[in-house]
Amino acid sequence: MRRLPAVAMAALLAVPMSGCKVMQRISDGSFNNAVTDGVVAELRDRGVRLEHRPSCKTPDSGSTSVVRVHCTARTRAGEPITVTGLAEAADTAHPRELYVVTVGGRELFRKDCLGLGCR
């Protein structure tokens, strides 16, 4: 089972279930929710209004040390929003994260953390 990046640690809830695959799905879901919440907060702080919350997916990287996330959304004006995230050393106490957010095909920001608790 892989360790979640820092952005997801606060969002992970303890759920009494067995099996690594079940916990992996829960962990991916928690990570996706944490990234979504962070993206919503970052865009709101920049005055970008969303049509709906971003939809995020965590494709299997084939490694416990690499976690990727891809999110899509639209602004209220209809411009596409994409979020790509990468966490390396995700199975350690100090993962290295990078998130890139584009609006209408233009990079809006690039950060190593998202939302609350970001430095």
Rank of each mutant, 00 (worst) to 15 (best):
R96I: 08
V101S: 04
P80H: 03
V7Q: 01
H94C: 00
R25L: 10
A11Y: 09
A10N: 11
P80T: 04
H70M: 03
A41V: 13
G62V: 08
R74P: 05
A93W: 08
P16A: 07
V67E: 06
V22E: 05
H94P: 00
S61A: 14
S63W: 04
L13T: 12
V35K: 01
L116M: 07
A73P: 06
V67M: 13
F31L: 13
C20R: 04
R53V: 14
Q24L: 10
H94E: 09
P16M: 00
M1L: 02
R3V: 05
D37C: 06
F109P: 03
T102Q: 11
V7I: 14
L50F: 13
A10T: 12
S27Y: 11
T72D: 07
G19K: 03
G29E: 09
Y99F: 15
M1Q: 00
E107I: 10
V100S: 05
D60L: 12
L4P: 02
R46G: 13
D91W: 09
G104W: 01
R106W: 00
V48N: 07
R44Q: 15
V35G: 02
P95L: 06
A14R: 13
C20W: 05
L98T: 10
G47R: 13
A90F: 01
D45F: 08
M9K: 12
R49M: 15
G47W: 10
V66L: 12
P16Q: 07
A14C: 12
H52T: 14
L12R: 06
R96T: 10
C71Q: 05
T84I: 06
R110W: 04
T72F: 00
V83G: 01
K111I: 00
H70S: 08
A90W: 02
Y99G: 01
H70R: 10
R46K: 15
L50Q: 11
G47N: 15
H70Q: 11
D60G: 11
V35Q: 03
P5Q: 03
N32T: 09
M23V: 09
G117L: 07
G62Y: 05
I81N: 01
L43I: 14
G115P: 08
D60R: 12
E42A: 15
F31Q: 03
G78N: 08
T102V: 02
T92Y: 05
A93N: 08
A6E: 09
A41N: 11
K111T: 04
A10D: 11
R119L: 09
A90R: 02
V7A: 03
V48H: 06
L86H: 09
M9P: 00
S65N: 11
V35D: 01
I81G: 01
V35I: 12
T92A: 03
P59T: 10
L114E: 01
N32Y: 05
P59F: 11
D45H: 13
P59W: 12
P80W: 06
I81R: 02
E97I: 01
V15H: 06
A34Q: 05
P5N: 08
M23I: 10
V15P: 03
